[in-house]
Write a protein that binds this DNA or RNA. Sequence first.
DNA 1: TCGACTATGTATAACGC
DNA 2: TGCGTTATACATAGTCG
Lengths: 205, 205
Amino acid sequence: MGRKKVEIKRIQEKSCRQVAFCKRRKGLLKKAKDLSIMCDVDVAVVIISNSGRLYEFSSSNSLTGILQQYESHVEADKEISAEIQVTEHSKYARFVTTGELLQTTERQLEENDAEGLTVTDLVHLENELQTALIQTRSRQTHLMLESIKGLHEEEKLLQEENKLLEDNLARIQQNGKVNDTSMDSTDLPPTHIICGQQRATLNFL
Amino acid sequence: MGRKKVEIKRIQEKSCRQVAFCKRRKGLLKKAKDLSIMCDVDVAVVIISNSGRLYEFSSSNSLTGILQQYESHVEADKEISAEIQVTEHSKYARFVTTGELLQTTERQLEENDAEGLTVTDLVHLENELQTALIQTRSRQTHLMLESIKGLHEEEKLLQEENKLLEDNLARIQQNGKVNDTSMDSTDLPPTHIICGQQRATLNFL
DNA sequence: TCGACTATGTATAACGC
DNA sequence: TGCGTTATACATAGTCG
């Protein structure tokens, strides 16, 4: 359904994949909506991009609002750059959201107590909670993995910087012993040998 | 996308609605599958017909949605074990255990398909899976948090070490200027220019 | 990178059995 | 009820700006 037939397999080019994701995601959510309206059935679609973002459709819309709220919580937290803060904040956000979810649940249960919930109602409720749980957990894992990855990179950078500093220290001490007058001598050409040493040292950087 | 345009609204004729449901359901599930494969994202679709029948698609294994969790666990463990060797063993153990449990589950479900499992059997099975899930999840979170904590400590140490080295470097360079003749100079100092270049390069670090 | 366009492949409404 | 066929609407891959 485009200019040419495409195989159903993972798209290699990242940009193409991103574009296709955007288009097809939209299409899928529309079709889910159409199906639920036209055929009068319950439909839920959850999509998690590999960058961890959540897209969803739910014909029984009680879950939608709550999940969006959760998303905005997490998004706000994402702004904070310090890694551990991200972890802790998202933990807190998750807690709050779960609390809200439970409150909502309890309220619903209480409200409906008089007339009684049908088994179907409870099944729906269970599905919604299950979905919320899965998304929350998935998001948690994603954030922590990101955090770990970032810390590893930072660690690598620090170690490299460290190594360079040590080398410099060693070299300067060496130079100080070998040619301490070097700093402000103007007229003395370097020997061939020293030049070689220096260049070798610099190349090492 | 048929002989004539249809409005997106509930189809009145029951038989038409049923036919449309069958076709569109199939289409939706296919598109969900395509999306998950082509764009390499997680997709889950749940459809409940108004007669209560369940249709679903999940890009990660979906028997109950518990397997989805299992997936993320394995992924998490992969990442973590790269840096925590101790994890290796427990990871493998958990894998085998969960794997066996799931195999057992599937076997039982298949074997008993004709006669059907009793409700008691299923409740028992559910509890077992639930327990395994909780333990696995708890372990995952623990390991990741430990990992993050450790990395933060390591980072702090590296930064301190870094600072010390920088201080040393600064002090030594200072000394070199003030009393450059103090050290035993040999006979061949480098040129000013080359030294300058060197220092500029080093300062940049 | 992003939205708009368009040629083309797909999904499906209606129909027949 | 369900499957196959066909004409048509729709979704989208590639392209351009």
